[in-house]
């Protein structure tokens, strides 16, 4: 990776991040980048190492090895982190006896922001009515909104949100989606949101970083993930011939565990026609029942066989 690319304003880069807790490798040589102007989903099952990764990027945890950077700098070296990066980590971080407004005013003071900023962000997240109540009585959804308000205080260029949809009702999720899309599309900010449920963020994100057991499984556009465009499953006794026949369609062909082929980027009709034209025998041809969620589950499933030794 060239230094210029790394130093791109607003880009989040994980470079070979590793975190070991005792005997457990919570994060294992993880590298990925998150681009400005996009909403990136950071996905993986519970315990995959998402929160640990975010904590390392945010400087709350020290990597065992590797680095996490934002705009080319480690968190501790950011000139005004409170005004550059907004972050919410899972499990809410509020004193139960402090009102929402006072909570925000504490951090206005710490970041050197005017106090009226607290009222502005409260309005953004729809908590103006509850501003003067102590957080003790807040629902999980309200706490999520207050966490988001805290992250937005400094009008940050980069947002990292850990499970932000947790506890939000469908209306709240739609609202969050609109807000995050606006940040990325209109403001060109960097937005990274973690989730353990793909469907929760499927309609919000452009790109995904999928991890399991601390390792990267997939990084790229959500649209390129098998199943995203209703992939096609096809079974044939001559897979090589079929691959050749499909080559002009510019599709991605991957062998599936059951011996069939997964085809991404074409309709079943197009695949069937190509096979017929090339005289390739087909035993099965169907629209990919492998939805995104299935793909996600398959990607992140525990390996049934032992993993490769010495990896």
């Amino acid at each position: 990776m060239s230094p210029e690319a790394t130093a791109l304003e607003g880009r989040i880069v994980a470079n070979d991040l590793t975190k070991v807790f005792g005997e457990v490798k919570a994060v294992d040589g993880l590298s990925f980048s998150v681009e400005p102007g996009s909403v990136t989903g950071f996905l993986g099952p519970n315990g995959a190492g998402k929160t640990t990764t975010l904590r390392m990027i945010l400087g709350l945890a020290t990597p065992t090895s590797g680095t996490g950077t934002i705009s080319g700098l480690t968190y501790a070296h950011l000139p005004h982190p409170g005004r550059t990066v907004g972050a919410v980590l899972e499990a809410t971080s509020f004193h139960p006896g402090r009102s929402a407004r006072n909570h925000l005013r504490v951090f206005c003071a710490a970041a050197g922001l005017p106090d009226k900023r607290a009222d502005e962000v409260l309005e953004w997240v729809g908590l103006t009515q509850a501003a003067r109540y102590s957080v003790r009585g807040f629902s999980l959804g309200m706490r999520q909104r207050l966490g988001l308000a805290t992250a937005l205080l400094g009008n940050p260029r980069v947002l990292l949100l850990d499970e932000p949809a947790n506890g939000l009702d469908p209306e709240g999720i739609a609202w969050l989606r609109g807000l995050l899309r606006h940040f990325a599309d209109v403001d060109g900010r960097t937005v990274l949101i973690s989730s353990h449920v793909l469907s929760e963020v499927e309609q919000t994100v452009d790109r995904v970083v999928i991890i399991a057991r601390g390792r990267l499984l997939y990084e790229g556009r959500l649209a390129d993930l098998e199943g995203a465009n209703g992939g096609v499953v096809v079974r044939t006794p001559s897979p090589e011939q079929l691959s050749g026949a499909l080559a002009p369609l510019n599709v991605k062909v991957t062998p599936r565990a059951d011996g069939s082929l997964g085809v991404v980027g074409a309709t079943p009709e197009a695949v069937g026609h190509a096979a017929w034209a090339a005289h390739v025998e087909l035993h099965e041809l169907r629209a990919g029942s492998s939805s995104l969620e299935e793909t996600f589950l398959r990607l992140t499933a525990e390996p049934s066989a032992p993993t490769e030794p010495g990896a």
Partner: peptide, 18 residues
């Protein structure tokens, strides 16, 4: 200690990593 108990240590040290 209340910072660690209620995890306000997170926003606190996010805004001031020093």
């Amino acid at each position: 200690t209340t910072e660690f108990r209620h995890f306000t240590s997170r926003p606190t040290f996010l805004i001031e990593p020093r």
